[in-house]
Nucleic acid binder design. Structure first.
Lengths: 350, 350
DNA sequence: GTGAAAGCGCTAACAA
DNA sequence: TTGTTAGCGCTTTCAC
């Protein structure tokens, strides 16, 4: 149990077999010009001595590493845990490891994270950049040093790097159309901070859906708040105080939708019969509340997978030619649950 | 924008200043016996040339790395995202980076993860071992190679390593006592798979709480299922079919509790008036369902932080003396919400 | 098909 | 206070 395994190197294997350490290296990496018999012997001794490759030395010598750096705001947030899962899955399949760094949405941390990754000689960086971005110099430094950079969740066109984002506009369009199809006539929108482009796109989708379907957009029915339960509650109260209240709400985000639902219930209105509601983000709780919340799924795991895939593609292409930045836009999925289904079958869900 | 930063080494700085690269190394690491003026000059040139330390070379030479490997089942699961957040926070504060690996609860992945970490020369490994563990040889190999190993969520006494766990017994005790204090007389328990020690401890806490308070444990009121909504629903139906139904349920886990709540509602019983209920895990949804779910908080972020702290402690102590394995037991926190508060104030929560 | 030798970029022991 | 030298463990020319 407590015996200690000493450091064993290729040199040790070479000595044991009276061969050169270069041959050992070649044998272990399955070099074509090494005889099967030698490979066999080397593998046996390696196993006997419990040899483990020293990736640090290997990486230094070859100038290549198989580590990808991932920058996220916070691993505790469901969205990023999911993306991380997707990234690690693909990386793992390609025998790459994942180094993570949390920015906590702070510029300073973000900058240190990038620097640490660069010093660690990562093969690439996958990052979700800050919502409030002042300065992107540290990101262009990644590019300048020849390290592939892929963005997810947010795209920054000026950086000239590939990115994976979800089509917020299409999601909002689908959600709003769905409410119209349910027979809703006065559809309100609780919007988010308009300097966040995703929230702006969702507003645009809402407006365009109504326009396309020949419904006049009523400015009174569009209110703005932050992404929080409290804010949703407040904004909904405003909507409920209108002379003619809405019969549906498309909310920019699930937590805001939750707050709105609380306000609707407090006003003794029925969901979805009096007011139908659709959120955005597919937060896990939506499936468990009463009524269950219709929402838009952002394909988070797929986002991570595609970001990782883009990285591996850029690895292969960089050998031959310049790899053009590619913006991958994932199509979100409308999830219709009780909160927006006027004729839903009552179930025993909570 | 598109200019390229060439690889610049300590040698480049040394040449520029006509000094030795060893002096550069010492200056940059703030060695005490280097003059302030030299340090100043070196730092200036380093900045001018946009020098970045090559941690791979540094690590190979010094034999030390500042990377910690973290093994978790799945980053998508809330619990582990939280723990990861805690670990990364402490690691980051100590200028360490985090390499992650997901096992997906598969032995084979687990083994590969450990091997990858060892090859990457990590300074330590923090791991949540598999629920169903057959073979722990790869974990004892970590120890044999002199790499500190800390377990979280699950402890394995035979491995002789430090661990951070939550006191399941105390949590169950508190939850059950709370139900008694609410005036409940017939308290049922929906248990989990009894080969999982955490679930066993929760059953024990339930039994002991009743015993201590002089309440006879009724075997009919203890049922077992898996950790899932469906299972909770099924087990609750069993309890509801008893000739005298329970007036409270302590459920082994929040999802099971959610299923139970659905079954109670389907049977047209009121929560908590007819049947009060407490879960375990503090899943986010508990705050948002109707009624809000009382539960036991497992201190996940703190678990990660303490695991990382234990690692850093073992780093310091290993220099002087053998570091004794230490089992840190976190005290869980009972969160009383509507589902168990017989006299709760009606609020507008959803 | 294998060996010899050099060197990736850094740090640490030993000199001076 | 700084320089010299060696070498961490590996891979990769260039030989043969």
């Amino acid at each position: 149990m407590s015996e200690i395994i000493l450091k064993v190197t290729m040199m040790d294997i070479a000595k044991e077999l009276n061969i050169n350490s270069a041959t050992v290296s070649r044998a272990l990496s399955n070099h074509p010009r090494i005889s099967e018999s030698t490979k066999q012997m080397v593998r046996e001794v390696a196993k006997k001595l419990q040899y483990q490759l020293n990736k640090v030395a290997s990486s230094l010598r070859s100038g290549k590493s198989n580590i990808i750096g991932v920058i996220i705001p916070n691993a505790e947030i469901n969205f990023f845990g999911s993306v991380l899962h997707g990234i690690e899955k693909i990386a793992s399949e390609n025998k790459y490891s994942i180094l993570i760094y949390q920015t906590n949405e702070l510029y300073w941390f973000d900058k240190i994270g990038v620097q640490t990754f660069l010093q660690s000689q990562v093969a690439g960086v996958l990052a979700s950049i800050l919502k409030e971005t002042i300065n992107l110099d540290h990101y262009s430094e990644i590019k300048k040093r020849g390290v592939p950079l892929i963005l997810f969740e947010m795209a920054v066109d000026t950086l000239g790097v590939s990115s994976v984002v979800v089509d917020d506009y299409a999601g909002a369009l689908a959600a709003t159309k769905h409410l119209v199809m349910q027979g809703c006539k006065r559809i309100a929108h609780i919007g988010g901070q308009q300097h966040v482009s995703a929230f702006k796109q969702r507003l645009k989708g809402y407006v365009d859906a109504l326009n396309v379907l020949g419904i006049q957009v009523d400015d009174d029915l569009v209110v703005y708040g932050k992404v929080s339960i409290e804010s949703g509650r407040e904004q909904m109260k405003k909507l409920l105080s209108l002379s003619i209240i809405p019969d549906a709400v498309f909310s920019v985000e699930d937590f805001t939708a939750l707050g709105a639902m609380q306000a609707i219930k407090a006003a003794n209105k029925k969901i979805p019969d009096d007011i139908a509601i659709v959120g955005f983000a597919n937060e896990p709780f939506g499936e468990y509340i009463t009524p269950t919340l219709s929402t838009v799924n952002q394909q988070t795991v797929q986002m991570g997978e595609e970001a990782a895939n883009l990285f591996f593609k850029s690895l292969n292409n960089s050998d031959t030619e310049k790899f053009d930045p590619f913006k991958m836009v994932l199509q979100p999925e409308l999830i219709c649950r009780q909160s927006s289904m006027k004729n839903y079958k009552k179930s025993d869900s909570t």
